[in-house]
């Protein structure tokens, strides 16, 4: 009796002590992730040392800044959709015909080990040799090239983890290949599609460098202009407003995608 109660006590003490392991990290993350983001929020309302909405007015009244945001969103959507359309078949074929040869799947991510700036430069050289005019089209190509592996990877993970017997069962029950895909494989791969989209969309609109380089600085994306704003201390305020806009976009994208993800796992009616 006595022994067991002391045992219980030490266990409770332990539950507390194990929990405590997360505190230093929590504090670290609060300081280095949350506080800096709060500082952006704060900076957005500061101009000439006073609390004001001027920075918001500046950003939302400039047509140029809004046009850049619009362009970035369009480019982001286009890149994401094309990456999905190109990448899904790759992941599907790999999962269907090449389950055992993991090396083949790895070959699709080897290019990520070469610095993206070098690869972007190589693409630019190819376009120059082919006499293609640098602009929105070449930027789109560069983005797709750079982010395609990020789409293939999560799709591949999800598709290979789907239990083959679902498809076989559907087959036995009279489904043809196409409807097995449409009614079994595709719905089950939604989590992979979602994480692929998040891994492509947000980085595309916020990356700088690729767009500047592949367009001879004629195409500016939102990431490029945020970077520009923080080069001078005077424009930090407007830059902070733009960062907030970006942050809101990130949150909206994640909330939407998470909701979609939950709906399908709950209401799929498959399991």
């Amino acid at each position: 009796m006595n022994k067991s109660s002391s045992n219980q006590q030490s266990r409770r003490a332990l539950m507390i002590s194990r929990k405590v392991f997360s505190y230093p990290y929590l504090i670290f993350m609060l300081i280095f992730v949350v506080v800096p983001l709060v500082m952006i929020l704060f900076n957005a309302f500061i101009k000439d040392d006073s609390f004001t909405l001027a920075n918001f007015v500046t950003f939302f009244s400039q047509r140029e800044g809004l046009a850049i945001l619009g362009n970035s969103l369009v480019l982001g959507f286009a890149t994401t959709i094309i990456c999905l359309l190109l990448g899904y078949p790759v992941a599907y074929i790999l999962a269907r015909y090449h389950v055992k040869t993991r090396t083949l799947a790895l070959l699709f991510i080897v290019p990520m080990w070469i610095n993206f700036l070098i690869r972007t430069l190589a693409i630019k050289e190819i376009f120059m040799t082919l006499d293609v005019k640098l602009g929105m089209g070449t930027v789109l190509f560069g983005m797709i090239y750079n982010y395609l592996p990020f789409m293939i990877l999560p799709l591949h993970t999800t598709l290979t983890s789907i239990d083959k017997s679902y498809g076989e069962a559907a087959n036995d029950l009279g489904c043809d290949e196409v409807s097995v895909f449409a009614r079994v494989t595709l719905p089950l791969s939604v989590p992979g599609i979602i994480s692929g989209i998040t891994m492509v969309f947000i980085p595309t609109i916020s990356t700088f460098a690729i767009s500047q380089y592949l367009s001879e600085r004629t195409v500016m994306l939102f990431g490029d202009s945020i970077d520009m704003m923080f080069k001078l201390t005077e424009t930090w305020g407007v830059g902070s407003v733009m960062s907030l806009v970006m942050l809101v976009l990130v949150i909206i994208a994640n909330v939407l995608l998470n909701r979609f993800n939950k709906d399908t796992t709950k209401g799929g009616g498959l399991v």
Binding site: M29, V34, P36, M39, I40, I202, S206, T207, M246, L247
Partner: peptide, 27 residues
Amino acid sequence: ITLSINQLPMINSEIVMAVALMIFFIT
């Protein structure tokens, strides 16, 4: 709550993380 904070640097765009850290370090 902890996992949401943990997610922040992963889902957030890199440029926002970068400027946030920059403001933080300079301040």
